[in-house]
Simulated scan of single mutants.
Amino acid sequence: MRICFIMYPWERVEAQMDSTLRLIHECVKRGHMVALTTPNNLTIRNSVAQAYVDVFTKETKVTNNFVSFYKNAKFKRCQLPLSGFDMIFMRDNPPLDTLALNFLDSVDSHTFIMNSLNGLRIANNKLYTSSFNDHENRFIPVTHASKNREYLQRVLAESPGDRMILKPLNGFGGEGVIIVEKKAASNFRSLLDFYIGNKNSKGNYVILQEYVEGADQGDVRILMLNGEPIGAMRRIPAKGDIRSNVHAGGYVKKHVLSKDEKTLCKFIGPKLVEDGLYFVGIDVINGKLIEVNVQSPGGISRINTLNKVKLQEKVIDFIENIVITRRNLIEHKKLLTKVIDDANSIN
């Protein structure tokens, strides 16, 4: 199988805990041809979408030590057509480079891309959760998004709770997430000026969201594959911080999905698959969906360590099954086409 990872630069990989490295390692270990590239290396040559890629050579030693594998990897530089790959794995970090997706539109019908281009386009920001049609807000917190200061001030004033969560629409990694309280509403206008921007600019959208009880105790990261949960961990924020992200100083604990969390996964799973979002990370607080991470969901290494599992094996098994199925369909189509052509050639 020929696999291309479109990701962040190789030198930025944190070998000790990097999820993408686990996926790459599994592919190389299985003997697949693996190429790495970044959005900046996508190109068009003679109207064909290509990329400058680094291909793992046979000299690369595949040890079970990820740090050693990373440090000793051997590559050769090539310019290759993207439609020649059996699979393209999108693993670039947020924010989404929408222009890079345009390079891949011509490849989409020939090559399996995970996650799908359409899925990435519609789900790369925090508004995607509103598309699950949870009108009773059983699984999705009440969410407002706007750049209108007066509207957002009114939302806070009319909120049934004493506090809400404010965050930038396109933020990631817990960046800019804060709690706003009604009793401090006099400062809210200044916060909005900071988040939205000055009146002379187009302004940035912000999200004002219902505060879910238990948020101060952290959240649960659940990895979903083909609409089903395959692993989870609880993320605990650092003291004095509401952000659970490990990169923001939090830490993780082993977690077994609750009944409510399983129900949530069952509720959102079919739409994720329908939208071509086969491998995602969801962030859940008290049984409610806070975010869907579709670009480069992390957590594989930590969940593996906590549960003594290898989630990357399940992910690559899924990819192999998809590619084999597609190949079989193509071969079957060729066979049936030949039958028709042979019949048509008989006088």
Rank of each mutant, 00 (worst) to 15 (best):
K310L: 09
K259G: 05
V34E: 08
R149W: 00
Y195A: 07
F103L: 04
G231H: 05
T111R: 08
K334W: 01
E228Q: 10
E150A: 05
T37C: 12
K202E: 08
I324W: 10
N198A: 07
A238Q: 14
L306H: 14
E210V: 08
K29D: 12
A157M: 14
I324N: 15
G176L: 08
I303A: 09
K76P: 00
A123F: 11
K202H: 15
N124I: 09
I230D: 10
D283Q: 09
L99P: 12
F5D: 09
F318T: 01
I303T: 15
G197E: 04
R30V: 13
D260E: 13
S116W: 04
T20G: 13
K71D: 06
T57V: 02
M7P: 08
N125K: 01
G249E: 06
E136M: 09
D108N: 12
I88M: 11
V256N: 06
I222S: 11
V107Q: 06
I165N: 14
V13D: 08
I282G: 01
K314H: 13
E181G: 08
C4E: 04
E150C: 02
T305V: 10
M114K: 03
F56G: 06
L336T: 08
S159N: 15
L311G: 09
V256G: 10
Y70Q: 02
K29C: 11
T98P: 00
D134R: 11
N344Y: 05
A215E: 05
L272E: 08
G298I: 00
G31Q: 11
D317K: 00
L169Y: 05
K266H: 09
N307M: 00
L225D: 13
L99Q: 15
T63N: 11
I230T: 03
A157R: 05
K58F: 10
H110T: 07
K202T: 02
A123G: 05
L289R: 04
A184P: 05
D97P: 06
P94R: 08
F75R: 06
S159W: 13
V48Y: 01
T37W: 07
L104C: 02
I222N: 06
V284C: 06
N93Y: 10
E291S: 09
E228T: 09
Q217F: 07
Y211C: 11
D275Q: 14
N102Y: 12
Q50S: 15
T98L: 12
I330F: 08
T263S: 06
N198P: 00
T305A: 15
Y195T: 05
H332E: 11
S186L: 14
E228M: 06
F69W: 04
I179T: 01
V256S: 11
V292F: 03
K259Q: 07
A15T: 10
Q217M: 05
E136Q: 07
N118P: 00
C78L: 14
I140S: 10
